[in-house]
């Protein structure tokens, strides 16, 4: 099964195995059923299940590809693979578009962007006036909404991300590049036995 899951992602089979170890841990923190519930996703990210975060909720929904309220292992690996440094930029851009299309209308609308900026300011210490927020949103639309219809479609977004690659910065997790090296504890639990490790 690991082989199957690894295919079509930049992960090797042993990396998928390492991810399974991580998945098992996260998916059993609240409900011991080997599925990641929203609460467990929050706990893993924030150590706090109560903290509300617009983006984490959207991320959870996107990881939950089947939309059945839980993240299964295959969904976890496939979604994380988009954040791999080796994943194609177009894939990252498409994922980010879905994230930002809060109401899943197929467009990033002005009020959605404003909502995201406000959510961001809420969680940060930044104190920015609502006039300034309007200005930032206006200016962003000036740049990205090239067709000028008041919403950003997938095509406009892809072009915008291509011209401004830094907007996809959050779509790359350097950790994923060599997951078994960065998290050597995984290796112990993988096929390499403890005795082999001790011998090294």
């Amino acid at each position: 099964d690991f082989v199957n899951i690894a295919s079509g992602t930049p992960f090797t089979v042993s990396e998928v195995e390492a991810l399974h170890d991580l998945f098992r841990k996260i998916s059993n923190t609240v409900v011991k059923d080997n599925l990641i519930h929203k609460e467990e996703f929050h706990v893993a990210l924030f150590r706090n299940k109560k903290k509300q975060n617009l983006f984490v909720d959207r991320l959870f929904d996107l990881f939950d590809q089947k939309g059945n309220g839980v993240i299964e292992f295959g969904e976890f690996v496939r979604s994380l693979s988009v954040f791999h440094p080796g994943a194609p930029e177009e894939q990252k851009a498409a994922f980010a578009f879905k994230l930002y299309d809060l109401r899943q209308t197929g467009f990033i609308e002005r009020n959605e962007l404003k909502e995201m900026v406000c959510a961001l300011l809420d969680e940060s210490e930044l104190d920015i006036t609502s006039d300034a927020v309007e200005m930032i949103v206006d200016r962003t639309f000036d740049q990205a909404d090239t067709k000028g219809d008041g919403r950003i479609d997938q095509e406009e977004w892809t072009a915008f991300a291509k011209d401004n690659p830094y907007v996809l910065r959050n779509m790359t997790l350097p950790y994923l590049k060599d997951i078994t090296m960065v998290f050597p504890s995984f290796v112990v639990h993988s096929e390499i036995s403890e005795a082999d490790m001790a011998a090294k």
């Binding site: 991580l22 954040f83 961001l120 915008f160 907007v167 997790l173």
Partner: peptide, 25 residues
Amino acid sequence: RSCNAFQLISSMSSGFDLSGLFESE
């Protein structure tokens, strides 16, 4: 000057910091 909303979101939101997933000790 070149600041835009998506830049702010991508560089600042803790909601995107998935590294927490890897520190779930």
